[in-house]
């Protein structure tokens, strides 16, 4: 890309104006929303997931996710008796168009939807050199795309592969738990589009949230608990072979 002097003269003030907006920020847009009243998480009910890929498509439509990268994706596991620790896993195009039909076979199959785990002790925010990714007061891990350098250190630090560098914006990108929706009282696009209720947005600070009853009566696990990330995406009936 070459820039002529004339273009530069136009670009410089534009850059100054752009930076001014970074300095000042835009004012609060959801006046009825108090961040400290919420602590967001998500519940994934694995036995309910049918691998239709609705969540992946909804996410891409809602969040302008670039092709080949995923804020959420679905994996299909196939575990047989002899390879309990070595499952066969596929996720063609993130499961966006569903999965190939599985014929009756030995072992078991199940689907595992994945997304950012909104970790309370998140390794990605720990390593960000400039504070461009952070845990908001309501527990959602966000990326400040006007401030991110695009160094990709956070991508390396995420144990779950939930982050990527946006190929056009050149900044880190990931699931925001549809922050622009949940702050307006809506659920996430993936939950809205899930036909079976396999994904449920949950607010741990809301005493009336059904998650509390669910957690009381089910065996719930997070991904890679040995990583001690304080993950807040809870999986019901998670198989031990899932990584």
């Amino acid at each position: 890309m070459t820039i002529t002097r004339r273009q530069l003269l136009i670009l410089l003030p534009a850059a100054a104006v752009a930076w001014e907006s970074v300095l000042a920020g835009t004012p609060e847009t959801s006046p009825n929303y108090t961040m400290t009243d919420h602590w967001w998480s998500m519940l994934i009910d694995i036995p309910k997931c049918i691998g239709c890929g609705n969540c992946v498509r909804a996410c891409q439509a809602e969040n302008d996710v670039p092709d080949g990268f995923f804020r959420t994706w679905v994996e299909r596991y196939h575990v047989d008796d002899w390879h309990l620790a070595n499952p066969q896993v596929i996720s063609p195009d993130g499961g966006k168009e569903g999965f190939p039909v599985a014929k009756e076979d030995e072992g078991k199959y199940f689907f595992v939807p994945k997304l950012c785990n909104q970790c309370a002790d998140s390794p990605c925010t720990q390593v960000c050199p400039v504070g461009a990714t952070f845990i908001a007061p309501d527990g959602v891990v966000l990326v400040d795309q006007k401030y991110c350098l695009g160094c990709a250190y956070c991508v390396q630090a995420c144990p779950y592969g939930c982050r990527y560098v946006h190929p056009q914006k050149k900044v880190a990108d990931k699931c925001t738990l549809c922050y622009h929706r949940i702050t307006k009282g809506l659920t996430t696009a993936c939950c809205e589009a899930c036909p079976t209720g396999a994904r449920q947005l949950a607010d741990l600070k809301n005493p009336n949230d059904p998650i509390h009853a669910f957690l009381k009566t089910h065996s719930v696990q997070v991904l890679k608990p040995q990583m001690a990330t304080g993950a807040k995406v809870f999986y019901n009936a998670l198989d031990g072979s899932v990584r």
Partner: peptide
Amino acid sequence: LGHPERSYEMYLTPHRSS
């Protein structure tokens, strides 16, 4: 870096845990 022009932020607001 995806945004080399922002690298000075490392000096402005260094994140102590990074």
